[in-house]
Simulated scan of single mutants.
Amino acid sequence: MKGAFDSHFHIDRLGRELRLATYNLRELQGSAQSMDQSNCVHLCGAVANFCDPITYPSLEDVNFLKSQGIVTTVGLHPRHATGVRPATVDKLQEMLQWPEVVGLGEIGLDHTAPMEEWAVQRDVLATALGLLGPRHVLVLHCRGRHEARVFGAPRIPLLSVCGSCVKGAEDFRKCSLWIYQSRRKEEVYHGTC
């Protein structure tokens, strides 16, 4: 069986989808027996991205994941921006202070949301970027409207917000950028900067 490292893994969403309340990777993998075995790989490690405030992990959860070779990032998915409250930002800030949390994300802009929400998304992105520490990897989410194939949108506003919140090029550190142009799998671009 081939080995693999998953660099963008929503273990909380997977558990919810499988109706399992666990972060035990072996249990999650065992419950997916209906999968085509020819596509299976041995997961050597992963980056677990928690961006849904309702499923934020506890420090105990983060340490359990770490014991399985999974590192953790925490963020605020842009589709949740209108529901972000000061307590949510406080919790995010607290988790980012845990040495076991390696990054901020995913955060960003999602222009499949109604246009009226875009300004709130930019504000939440700017707030989240203010919590970014020098040791954190940054995981950015960037999704445009499916019908609008204009180059750069919403990448230009995303980079503009990031540029004004992250002072100086020397502060712009490891970054994982996910750009979704459509729901079609072949049009998801991942890059690092």
Rank of each mutant, 00 (worst) to 15 (best):
H77N: 09
R13K: 12
H111P: 05
V74L: 03
W178Q: 10
K66C: 03
A126K: 10
L96Y: 05
L92V: 04
D123I: 07
V166L: 13
R16S: 05
E94W: 05
E170C: 00
S31A: 14
T22M: 02
P134M: 00
C162H: 10
A21M: 04
E100I: 00
F64Q: 15
R79T: 14
M115P: 09
S67C: 03
Q97N: 09
A46N: 13
Q121N: 12
R79I: 08
G103K: 07
L109K: 02
F64A: 14
S34W: 14
L18N: 03
I107V: 15
L177T: 15
L177I: 15
L76V: 11
G30L: 03
F151W: 08
C165T: 05
V120P: 06
Q33N: 04
V71D: 11
T72P: 05
L65M: 15
L129I: 06
V101H: 10
C40S: 11
Q29Y: 01
E186F: 00
V124P: 10
Y56F: 15
T127E: 15
G168W: 06
G30I: 05
A81I: 07
E94D: 06
V150C: 01
R155Y: 06
I179D: 13
R122I: 01
C51T: 13
W118M: 02
F172N: 01
D6E: 14
R19A: 09
G103Q: 05
H141K: 09
Q93K: 15
L20I: 04
E116F: 02
R183V: 09
D52V: 05
L129V: 08
L138Q: 02
L159M: 14
R122W: 01
